[in-house]
């Protein structure tokens, strides 16, 4: 690799020889302009919409500010200790992780099985794929409101269906059942994962599968030893993004509840009071901005930790076609 005079430390007193490196540096600066032009919207966006709010929320989390008063008191880490010592924190976290514990595995496994089924050569395959994917493109607000109407006890479609078989109406949106309605609603968007899995399945090299068959592997063996490892990076991506999305579930919970305003967010049935609902209630119902900001920061750290754990322990079960560490070493 040739070193430029600027980087090699070589100097010259000759004017003509100085002109060449100057043009070179200026030229490189002009060349780099498109790079910075392309990343600047994201960089500025990240600073304004992510970094600044994060730092701001951290500052607020150290106070007892109510979001409106000109006065507030510096509390240090008092809000953080209060969050950890509140039973409400643990119960809402428990509900949130229970929700994720049900929705994430079913979404991943179900999405994979559906993708395998839709990857078969059957009639109307495109139509079936469309049907599975369609719910994933319906906006969550519209989907949730439609479900609220369908699950209405007196006039909902589900109870009308049950009545056909003489089964009494069910209070779907009340305490005791509404959690499962939420689970079903979240699973309704499984089609997005199916589409990703389908693309991953079609990307598995056919020669690998044929080689496995030649070695005597049956269909399950080919799937287990060839297909699954080949698509494992895609599955890991889905596990991480689905987990984060489910942990942050908020709008469907709110819309399924009797809440009609920010202050009535506490009217969400207890079993559906997931962590983000608690955070929202602390901010906008109870106006405890400091406490709510501490809750958010703790949740942010928890999700970061969880993502790190996923990456850390995925090494044994996720296989990359190109070894990322080898790529890194080559650079």
């Amino acid at each position: 690799m040739a070193l430029s005079p600027a980087t090699s430390g070589l100097t010259s007193t000759d004017g003509a020889s100085r002109a060449t490196p100057r043009r070179s540096v200026r030229g490189r600066r002009w060349k780099s302009l498109p790079f910075y032009a392309f990343i600047s919207p994201w960089l500025i966006g990240t600073i304004l919409l992510t970094a600044f709010p994060l730092i701001y929320a951290f500052g607020v989390s150290l106070t007892n500010w109510d979001g409106i008063s000109p006065r507030f008191r510096f509390l240090g880490l008092e809000n953080y200790t209060a969050v950890f010592s509140s039973p409400e924190t643990w119960s809402s976290l428990g509900r949130t992780f229970l929700l994720a514990g049900i929705v994430v595995p079913v979404t991943i496994v179900g999405g994979l099985l559906l993708a395998i089924a839709l990857n078969q050569k059957v009639r109307f395959r495109t139509g079936f794929r469309l049907l599975v994917y369609l719910p994933a493109i319906i906006p969550p607000v519209a989907a949730t409101l439609a479900w609220k109407i369908l699950f209405d006890r007196d006039n909902g479609g589900f109870n009308a269906f049950l009545r056909l078989f003489g089964i009494p109406a069910v209070d779907w949106l009340s305490q005791g059942i509404v959690f499962w309605v939420l689970v079903a609603l979240l699973l309704w968007g499984i089609g997005a994962g199916v589409l990703i899995n389908l693309a991953a399945l079609q990307d598995v090299p056919i020669e690998l599968r044929e080689a496995a068959r030649l070695d005597g592997a049956n269909s399950f063996g080919v799937f287990w030893h060839v297909t699954l490892p080949a698509i494992s990076p895609v599955l890991l991506f889905q596990v991480i993004t689905t987990t984060i999305a489910v942990l942050q579930t908020f709008i469907p919970v709110l819309l399924l509840s009797p809440a009609t305003a920010a202050s009535s967010v506490t009217a969400v049935p207890e079993e559906n009071q997931v962590f983000m609902i608690s955070v929202y209630a602390q901010y906008f119902a109870y106006q405890r901005y400091g406490y709510a900001s501490a809750m958010l920061w703790i949740f942010f750290a928890l999700i970061l930790l969880l993502t790190f754990v996923f990456f850390k322990f995925s090494g044994r079960v996720v296989f990359y076609a190109v070894d990322p560490s080898a790529q890194e070493g080559r650079r």
Partner: peptide, 25 residues
């Protein structure tokens, strides 16, 4: 690399420019 990523002088200028843009916004 078609676009040099290691020019510290340019990066510094860019960051300064970005700060000006943020400030202006």
């Amino acid at each position: 690399h078609p676009i040099p990523l290691h020019s510290t002088a340019t990066r510094r200028r860019f960051m300064a420019g970005a700060a000006v843009v943020v400030g202006a916004l």
